[in-house]
Design a protein around this nucleic acid. Structure first.
Lengths: 249, 249
DNA sequence: GTACATAGTTGATATGGATCAACTCGGACG
DNA sequence: CGTCCGAGTTGATCCATATCAACTATGTAC
């Protein structure tokens, strides 16, 4: 047998968590080197979505959760009367779809904010695997509880904080998440539109815009469009009142 | 051996999920009759807390999650500057502490709103057990994702809805949770103070009070103190705009 | 039963951010 | 290179709810 392969075959995309630069942020984090193969067995790597494409849709039967490899994703809930509520932004190394694990259907819609590649973890196989690897199970619990906490933080932000505080908190959250990926924590480009920020933070677009310019006038940030430079992180932390990392992360 | 027992011994409280009237709402729901013993092995039943007592405290090392047997519990986060944010109310059959599973410390403080009895699930033994019982694991995932969704709903409520809508939604949520326990969905007594409601919904106490009287004047509810009667559920649903169950549940 | 504290209600006023409207910027496309 | 369109900014006005203040009801301790 050992049939010769005429050309380099299209990789079946069963590729390497081993080599992934994000493995220290993602699921492999929880796993011993020698168990990593078992995770690789179930993951489908490298699916690409263009800006605006849906990774999954609300009310669709739940199949998988996804890890962001590159790019970014926003999740949102659509209510019966058509209103949208952005529930989160997800950056490389972060897991999307945890809010639906164990449910029949996706609880939200996930949309690529830019060209984005993801790894897909089919839920039945993942549940099977977490049953066998206690560390992985523990890590899943941890990630999900983290998600609950994030959402509580968001609720707190929404109910107690001013527009300035909310935006400062978001900027700081993004900053620390860029930093975690060894990118500049002070100089980055926002993956989402003002509109999404406004929706996420429970504000009007106009308010977001005004706060941005106010911060700019105070010399706290420099912003042109989506390009942002944080000039005075200390000041941002003062504004955001609680120094904890809000929102996601 | 077979030593005679002189008096009826104090029960070691290894008691019966089998007989618990809430088993269809709680963890046993997920388990085959014959596996129920294994859950009973790890649960510590019947701990009682008086009104105002803490079931657990924020930043304390995480040990267990708790199921409410009777009474009710509120959870809240305290920020560095001493502000409190109520993150949820928990009624019989509901699980408290899911937001901390997999974490080192409790992410919130849980306080009994009235005389309350709980069942305690030590987390290490629970994780062990979920590793062995796939249905239980699945159920845990489901409960946790539910918790995320609830929190997202709360965030939505806080960012998009008026005071009246928020309060209507809360009343409806409580109503359906009472109903689930086969209690009157229209006639119940609020376990929490106006203050807690206000904090939870991101409103001032005065606003809560005003909305209650407004609803009363419109003949939608009848309220004296914590005693509430829902006179027109339809109307409440109209007010709460989205007909889904908000907040918890 | 009285007193004190706490929870809840009601009224008057202030304000942060929504809303409405007009304008500008930047990029895609012919 | 100009046109068009959505995204973003800026200004003026309005409103829901916070805030402040006074009062009432409820309940708890002596």
């Amino acid at each position: 047998m050992a049939q010769a392969i005429p050309f380099r075959q299209a990789s079946p995309l069963k590729a390497s968590c081993h080599q992934c630069s994000l493995s220290n942020l993602c699921l492999p984090l929880a796993i011993e080197e020698n168990d990593l193969d078992r995770l690789e067995d179930i993951v489908q790597q490298g699916r690409i979505f263009n800006r605006g494409e849906h990774i999954f849709d609300q009310s669709t039967p739940y199949r998988s959760c996804f890890a962001v490899k590159s790019g970014s994703i926003k999740t949102s809930i659509i209510t019966e009367n058509g209103e949208e509520q952005v529930t989160g932004f997800f950056m490389p190394g972060e897991l999307v779809g945890l809010d639906s694990i164990g449910s029949e259907h996706y609880a939200c819609t996930a949309k690529a904010l830019e060209r984005t590649s993801v790894c897909e973890f089919p839920i039945d196989r993942l549940e099977e695997l977490t049953g066998k690897l206690p560390e992985l199970q523990h890590h899943m619990y941890h990630l999900m509880s983290q998600e609950i906490q994030n959402s509580h933080q968001l609720a707190m932000l929404l109910s107690k904080n001013t527009a300035e505080e909310r935006i400062a908190a978001l900027l700081l959250s993004l900053s620390s998440r860029f930093q975690r990926r060894r990118m500049s924590p002070t100089n980055f480009s926002l993956p989402m539109a003002r509109n999404d920020i406004a929706n996420f933070l429970g504000l009007a677009v106009e308010t977001v815009s005004r706060v941005f310019t106010r911060f700019q006038n105070q010399g706290i940030i420099k912003a042109r469009g989506r390009e942002v430079e944080l000039l005075d992180i200390e000041a941002l932390q003062m504004v955001s009142r609680e120094f904890s990392r809000q929102c996601n992360n």
